[in-house]
Structure formats: C-alpha cells, structure tokens
Amino acid sequence: MLTDLDLLHDDSAPAIRSWIDRATCRLPPGFITPVRQWLLVLLNGDTRSRPRSVSSIYVYFGAIRPFLDDWAASYDHLREVTRSDISAALRPLSGSQRHTATSAARSLFGFAKKRGLIFSNPTTGLKARSADFALLPMADEEIRAVEQQADDLAGRVIIALAAENAARTGAIRGLTLDDLDLANRRITLAGRRQRLGNLSHRALRRWLRHRRATWPHTSNPHILISDKTAHGTSPISQQFVTLRMNHAGCSVDRIRKDRILHEALAGGADPLHLSLVFGISHSTAARYSAVAEKLLADELDRASQLP
C-alpha cells in the first residue's frame, strides 16, 4: 500500500549488492574497480543500457571469474590483459559455455574501455561460435539463481512444473484441481497424465495449503489463483506468470527446453523417446536430439584430449 502511494522509502541494501562486494573483494586492486563497476552497471543500468536480471549477473560473473583469477596471477591490472590471453582462456570451451564466456568478456572489456579504465578493448571483433543457444543447457549459475529467486509459492509451482514436466505456460495456467492426484503422485497436463516429481509435489502441497488458508470459500477450479481470479472461475493471466518468472530471472520456456534437453542427453538422444515422454512433435524431438548428439560428441572429444 505504501509503495502504491509513493510513501515507502526502502533503505535496505539488496542482497545482490552485498554479493557483488563479496565476489570482487578478493581480486587485486587493479581488477576490483573495473569488475565491481561493471557488475553494478549490469545491476542498475545506465543512460545507454537497461538493468540486467539478477540471474544474468550471476551467470556473467560465474563465466568470467576463472579467467580473472588466472589473469590476476600474472597481471596487476585488467588493462594488461591481451587478445591472446582471452583467446587462450576461451579455447577449451564450447557450446553454451563458450557463448556465455565470450559475451561476458565482451561486456566487461567494452564497459571498461568506455569508462576509460583500460587503454584498448581486446575483445573488439570477438564473436561467439554459432550455436542453437535456445536449446543449450542452463548453466549451473543460472539454475542456482532461479532457485534462489523463487521465493513466491505460486512461482515455485510454476518453476517446478516447467523443470520436471516441461510444462508450457498455458498448461500451467489451465491446471485444475481435478487434474491433480497428490496421493498417487500423478498430474494431468494438457490432457496427458504424467508422474509428479518430488519438487513439484512439495511445491504443490505448500501452495494448496496456502490456497486453502487464503481463499477458503473460492469456487475457482484452477490450482493457481490470485486475489482477482479467486472471486470467479477464470485461470490466472499470462501476466501473473510473467511477473513471477521475471523476478526469478528466467522464463518458463527456457526452463522447459532445458528439461527436454537433459532428457535427451540422459536417454541417448532418442527422438521417439522424447516425443512419447513430452508429447512434442517428431520434428521438434529430432531437433533436441541433434543438439544432444552434438553436446555428447563435444564431451567425448574433450575427454579424449585429457592426459
């Protein structure tokens, strides 16, 4: 209420600000200033760029942190890093790791050059290898960020269903109480009866307890309801889902694709298996299988090159 009336002055420090201070404090003095300022601009934005999500900040710093540690062992300042140093750091990487690390390096050094913190930008002209990024696995930092930000009970249900059952937004919004069988750990999503995983089971139980306590007399048949829909029978809006996923720093579609791809990696890149498990078309299943085969081949190549 105070926020709506523009009367709230929240002077508490966001957790991400404290994390930035902790994450950069161990770097050498010549690295601390440019890296910390870069992360703060990612967080707050400036006149030329919009603020990035918290998960993007975690992912970017997680991707470039190993490089910073290596460079700090040889150099006293970020401006001493050369193009050959960056190329050597990126050489062992491939796929999503290389794409993310390249993007993070270009962002950091581009920012430092604009602010006059380095003399030249060693990433000028540097491009990530082309990849079907929409079908690449989520980075560990990205997954942890989503989990940490999912502090809303409804948001946890949405994330859990996308992560375990590869549920689409429409299927989550349309889910009704009749579609749920908690006792037998089964759920019907978009007309398909599926097993209910542990994460989804816990999230749904907590949400249903909250739902009964908050709206005990609602006649809305949908599992996810809000203050608005509790007085009727309509499902939650797309905005209801979008706001919660924006807070988590990820999208339902991103989590859903990650779930299908991990199944493809675990199941030997079998498109028929994917089509049966997730109810996707054969062409879509083949696309996921092709990406999985490429990732598995890259992993084998890296393993064969180890001493």
Rank of each mutant, 00 (worst) to 15 (best):
A150N: 03
L274I: 05
D132V: 07
N184Q: 11
C25P: 00
T3N: 11
A63I: 05
R48S: 12
R168C: 07
T233E: 11
Q97H: 12
T284Y: 06
V41S: 07
H77S: 14
R65H: 14
P28Y: 06
A266N: 13
R206Y: 05
D46S: 11
A105V: 02
A105P: 02
L175H: 00
G30D: 03
T176E: 05
A63S: 13
V54T: 13
T284L: 11
G62S: 15
R193F: 01
T47R: 12
S304K: 06
M138G: 01
R106F: 06
A266G: 10
S120E: 12
G155A: 07
H9R: 13
V146I: 15
S219P: 06
A213Q: 15
D69H: 12
D253Q: 13
R287S: 11
A303G: 00
S87P: 02
A23D: 10
G125Q: 10
N184C: 08
L306R: 15
H231L: 12
S283I: 12
I57A: 06
L189Q: 00
P66Q: 09
A73V: 08
D258T: 06
I20A: 04
L7Y: 14
H217D: 14
A286Q: 12
K294M: 11
L39R: 07
S234P: 02
K228P: 02
C25V: 13
A72H: 09
D298R: 12
I64T: 05
P137L: 10
P307L: 13
V252E: 02
G197L: 07
E80D: 15
D181L: 04
D21F: 04
G155M: 06
P66T: 10
A171N: 07
L265W: 06
I172W: 01
H222D: 00
R195G: 10
S74L: 14
I187F: 02
C250R: 13
S107W: 09
A171M: 01
A112H: 06
M245F: 11
K257H: 12
I118G: 02
I86Q: 07
S18K: 09
H231S: 13
A285K: 02
S251I: 09
V59R: 04
G62N: 14
L78T: 00
T284P: 00
P221T: 07
E80H: 11
S55L: 04
Q305C: 07
A88Q: 12
D178H: 14
A154Y: 03
G232E: 09
A190K: 00
N121G: 08
A88L: 13
A269K: 06
G174D: 15
E263H: 09
F240T: 14
L8W: 04
T33H: 10
A105N: 04
H210V: 07
A145W: 06
N121L: 02
S49F: 10
L243D: 15
A203L: 01
A163H: 07
I225Q: 03
G174W: 01
G249Y: 01
I32G: 04
A303Q: 10
A63V: 00
R211E: 08
D85I: 03
I225T: 08
D253F: 00
L274T: 01
Q97W: 04
L274V: 04
S234M: 14
D132G: 08
I118C: 04
Q239L: 09
A112M: 09
M245P: 03
R106C: 11
D76A: 13
L224H: 02
